[in-house]
């Protein structure tokens, strides 16, 4: 199965990590006028791409939130990860 290269801990098995959703555009401002369609697009609609995509994962061991580049068509190899916020 795939592994993820945590910037703190190095290459670890994916089972140490928790999936945290695909990276998406930022949420609209809290006071932006939104229709039901806008809300549905923000809350529920997903790209759900097959292939290389950018995601957020939590390294459950070291508690660091990461941006991970992962290929959803193929699990082999090591996924590169970077900090969400610079340490």
């Amino acid at each position: 199965m795939f592994r993820i290269n945590c910037p703190w801990c190095g290459i670890r098995d994916h089972d140490e990590f928790t999936f945290g959703g695909e990276l998406r555009a930022h949420a609209p401002a809290w006071d932006a006028p939104l229709t039901g369609e806008d809300l549905a697009a923000q809350l529920f609609m997903r790209d759900n791409l097959k292939g290389v995509r950018h995601e957020r994962w939590l390294h459950t061991s070291c508690r660091e939130w990461l941006r991970v580049v992962r290929d959803t068509a193929d699990h082999s190899g090591v996924c590169e990860a970077t900090h969400v916020r610079a340490p």
Partner: peptide, 10 residues
């Protein structure tokens, strides 16, 4: 518990 199209589990 992660999205995948690979048709195999862990």
């Amino acid at each position: 518990r992660y999205p995948s199209y690979a048709q195999r589990g862990s």
